[in-house]
């Protein structure tokens, strides 16, 4: 069986990457299980998906804790223990990270196994849309397992992304196959593993659950923090930016429809976004009648601000 985990942040397409890889395995005649796992259900929150592929029916279910391949679309997750990127990895696990410094991560994580970087796929045409991690990670992973043919992968992309329209599909297909091609030197480095049926298993460290005081045992939040003090602006991967030249001062649409009440409208009908609390859902971008609000990637937003000043 192959056991593969994709780690990323909400919005990076790791569910899609798992679906593409799952479909590709299925296209090669494997029995497959693929599933996303997310807690907070929001853009930017850590999540993962996983894929099992086996030549015989699968007698496992749920989270994979002994992965053969771990794909990390966002290297900031490496420093977040709660993301569980390194959970259950052994020296036999291959780690594929979206980074320019695979060796650096190998050293920092003191990881003895193979660490590879997700291939850098150029936007085409130059300056066009940068490749989506869902496509690149799926393509690279498909090559590493060594049992998926290029045309099977292409078929899986078409099947999974059919609903996105021709333009998006062609783009995704190009990125996926480019990543597949770029990993040719490492084809088959992730090995299919036979489960350790007879492995010695340690006894569970079962305990009797102690009865605690109500003060401790009731799941109450005693802190006095309010939602105003909770700076949810850090959740954004894109920020809405209002162009005052195009805003027609309707005075209410973006501010009313913002689900976090993070847009305040002045007496002179000018809207202002509270970036400390805007979570980057981009509802305002979608609803603004004169299209006066655009989405700017957080990475670029700081640079844009500098230029504006």
């Amino acid at each position: 069986m192959f056991r593969i985990r994709f780690h990323g942040r909400g919005g990076q397409g790791m569910k899609t990457a798992g679906n593409i890889l799952g479909s590709a395995f299925f296209g090669e005649g494997f029995e497959v299980q693929d599933a996303p796992r997310y807690g907070a259900e929001r853009r930017g929150a850590p999540l993962f998906s996983y894929v099992r592929a086996s030549r015989t029916p699968i007698q496992e279910r749920g989270v994979i804790d002994n992965p053969d391949l771990v794909v990390v679309a966002d290297e900031s997750l490496m420093m977040l223990p709660a993301a569980g990127v390194m959970q259950g990895v052994t020296a036999d696990t291959v780690i594929l990270i979206n980074t320019r410094d695979a060796q650096g991560w190998q050293a920092r994580a003191r990881f003895p196994g193979v660490v590879l970087a997700v291939p850098a796929i150029a936007a085409s045409p130059p300056g066009g849309t940068p490749p989506l991690q869902s496509a690149v990670c799926a393509g690279a992973a498909a090559r590493l397992v060594g049992v998926i043919r290029r045309e099977t992968l292409a078929q899986a992309v078409r099947l999974e992304l059919d609903a996105r329209g021709r333009l998006m599909l062609d783009q995704d297909l190009r990125w996926t196959l480019a990543a597949y091609d770029a990993m040719s030197a490492h084809a088959g480095c992730v090995r299919e593993r036979v489960a350790e049926r007879n492995g010695v298993t340690a006894a569970p460290d079962w305990i009797d659950v102690p009865q605690d005081s109500v003060r401790r045992a009731a799941p109450d939040i005693h802190a006095t923090a309010s939602s105003e003090q909770s700076l949810t602006g850090t959740w954004r991967s894109f920020r809405p930016v209002i162009d005052p030249g195009h805003c027609n001062r309707c005075s209410w649409i973006c501010g009313t429809l913002c689900p976090d009440s993070a847009i305040r409208v002045d007496a002179d009908r000018t809207p202002h976004i509270d970036y400390d609390h805007c979570k980057g859902c981009l509802v305002c971008v979608a609803v603004c009648p004169p299209h006066a609000i655009r989405a700017v990637a957080e990475g670029k937003a700081a640079a844009c601000e500098k230029i504006a000043q």
Binding site: G22, E31, A35, G62
Partner: peptide
């Protein structure tokens, strides 16, 4: 939920 609802299989 999740273990079956969100898990794809043949």
């Amino acid at each position: 939920g999740f273990y079956l609802s969100f898990t794809r299989e043949p």
